[in-house]
Structure formats: C-alpha cells, structure tokens
Amino acid sequence: MTEDVKLDEQENAAPATEERTPSAIPQDELDRLTDDLIGALKTVYDPEIPVDIYELGLIYKIDVSDDRDVLIDMTLTAPGCPVAGEMPGWVEDAVRSVEGVGDVQVNLLFDPPWDPTRMSDEARVALNMY
C-alpha cells in the first residue's frame, strides 16, 4: 500500500483522491513525513533559476509506501536542461536526509511537459512573473 501525495495546480500537497486502503503509517506520522519531504525538496534548486524545484512545480508525485519507501515523479523545465543527469540524484539525496525514509527512487518524466503554469505564487513573485 502506498500513500500518494499529489500536487494540485497551486503546488499544495493533498492526499490523492482515488480510493485506496488506509496507510499502515499513522496519519500524524504521515503528515510529518509529508511536510519533511516537501521541506527537503525545497532545498533543491535548478542552478539557473533562483527558485526551488518544489515551488517551480517540477515535482509531479510523491508516493510513500507502508515501509516508508519514497517514489518521486518529477520533471525538468526543459528536456535539454544541463543538469538533467544530476538533478534526480540531488532529489534522491535530499529525500534520503528525511528521518524515517526507507528506499528512495526518483523517476524523471517529460509527460506532461512542464510549463510555467505549474509554478506556485511564491515562484512567480521570485521570478517577477506577475
């Protein structure tokens, strides 16, 4: 069983809406783990953009299994990003630093392609895109 944390258009973490068996992880612990995972993701930056990857909307999905293994689906601002080979490792390292996390897997996806509408309001302000 995994607990999905899907991200809505404003990049707020929210439990997935599909029906599933309740997680074996107590809800308060799952909430803490989710907050810590998001905090860790916010430490990772694209070197060319002064906004973290979470606020940029590069994180598509976070799955946490009952064993506390974490699966991240993410993208890049462009397939030809110069750090495409390195950024998944940075994300993996950041997520591994969260207390209580088991194995970590990061999948790099390009479908759907990233576009600026996925950025949070915080990212838009930082990039003067209002």
Rank of each mutant, 00 (worst) to 15 (best):
V98Y: 03
L37R: 00
T17Y: 03
D31L: 08
Y130L: 14
V64H: 00
P22S: 08
C81P: 03
L109M: 15
D121I: 11
I38F: 00
L37P: 01
W114Q: 07
A126H: 04
D36V: 03
T21D: 09
L108M: 13
P112H: 13
Q27P: 07
D66G: 09
M87N: 04
P26W: 03
A16P: 06
P47F: 08
W90Q: 12
E122T: 14
V95L: 05
D93W: 01
N128G: 15
V98S: 04
N128E: 15
R68N: 10
K61Q: 09
I62T: 02
V51E: 02
E99Q: 11
T43D: 03
L30P: 01
E11P: 00
A126T: 06
E11L: 07
A126E: 14
Q27A: 14
Y54V: 05
D31P: 02
I53D: 01
P113N: 05
S23I: 10
R68D: 07
R124T: 10
L127H: 12
K42C: 06
E18G: 06
G102C: 04
L109H: 12
M1E: 09
Q10P: 02
V106I: 14
L33N: 04
L109N: 15
A78K: 10
D66T: 08
M74G: 03
N12T: 06
Q10V: 10
R20S: 15
S120H: 07
N128V: 09
V5Y: 08
D8G: 14
W90V: 04
G102W: 00
E19I: 04
G57S: 08
P116E: 14
R118G: 07
K42G: 06
L37V: 05
D35V: 05
D66S: 06
D35A: 15
D67L: 08
D31V: 11
Q27R: 13
L76D: 01
L58I: 10
G102P: 06
P22E: 10
S23G: 11
G100L: 01
A13T: 11
T77Q: 05
P47I: 09
V51P: 05
G85E: 08
G89D: 13
T43C: 05
Y45N: 09
E29Q: 15
I25T: 14
Q105M: 06
L108S: 11
R96E: 12
E48R: 12
L58G: 02
E11S: 09
S23M: 12
D63P: 00
I72V: 14
Y54Q: 06
P47W: 07
Q105H: 08
L41E: 04
S120F: 06
V104I: 04
R20E: 13
D4Q: 09
D63E: 13
V101F: 01
E86M: 12
D67A: 15
V83R: 02
E18T: 09
A78I: 10
